[in-house]
């Protein structure tokens, strides 16, 4: 997993509430057995019409095609647990999402893939949404270490993040490796349970 430290990039506005993971990546792209190449399916139905023609979706507009940050509405990533959603975002170059709130499973999935989801109060998201609307000038900086966001006009917004998640993200740590190091604790837990709950 890539480390996340500082990011300065274009932010694209996506002012919709309840953006679900079906919308982020529709089911026809879930038939893959790989994690890569999902960029093609990202927001597919917002991006193309029924005949497959481009609809000038925000991420296809010249000013936003290299966007690395999304600013979106409440309850981002609700619905299906599909990790294809963060994989597709990552494949399209998105490393950070800012919204008033996130659905739990999606939020969790982001951290496993080096994406930083930032939850902020609605008023602050509204400000950043305006910033993101400025096309070529929609450049936002995110500093994970300092837990700060800087808008194009230099205003600073600080954000909260769980300390352990921050640590893993900043160091690109692999959860499984961390847990394997606790193998003895898992062994002894299983031993105890074999006695107390043999049916489990």
């Amino acid at each position: 997993m890539d480390k996340f430290d500082k990011l300065t990039g274009t932010a694209a506005p996506l002012p919709l509430v309840n953006i679900d993971t079906d919308m982020i990546i529709p089911k026809q792209f879930l038939k893959t057995i790989k994690r890569t190449g999902l960029r093609e399916g990202l927001f597919y139905e917002l991006r193309t019409d029924e005949d497959g023609n481009a609809k000038d979706f925000i991420l296809d507009q010249p000013a936003y095609k290299d966007a690395q940050i999304l600013v979106a509405g409440d309850n981002f990533g609700c619905g299906s647990s599909r990790e294809h959603a963060p994989w597709a975002l990552l494949d399209a170059g998105i490393r950070c999402i800012i919204a008033p709130s996130f659905a739990d499973i999606f939020y969790n999935n982001c951290f496993k893939n080096g994406i930083l989801p930032i939850a902020l109060p609605q008023e602050q998201v509204d400000l950043l949404m305006d910033d993101a609307g400025r096309g070529a000038n929609a450049v936002i900086s995110v500093d994970l270490e300092a837990q700060e966001i800087k808008g194009p006009d230099g205003g600073t917004i600080s954000f909260e993040i769980d300390a352990f998640r921050k640590h893993c993200l900043m160091n690109g740590l692999d959860d499984i490796g961390l847990t394997m190091a606790k193998g003895e604790k898992i062994d002894s837990f299983e031993e105890r349970r074999k006695l107390s709950q043999p049916w489990a």
Binding site: I105, N108, N109, D162, I176, L178, T179, M180, I186, E190
Partner: peptide, 20 residues
């Protein structure tokens, strides 16, 4: 509860999950 694919791998390998 539902989990993502990275967590599926985590459970397959360790029979545990990191949670709050």
């Amino acid at each position: 509860f539902g989990i993502g694919t990275s967590e599926v791998e985590h459970v397959l390998a360790t029979q545990t999950l990191i949670q709050k």
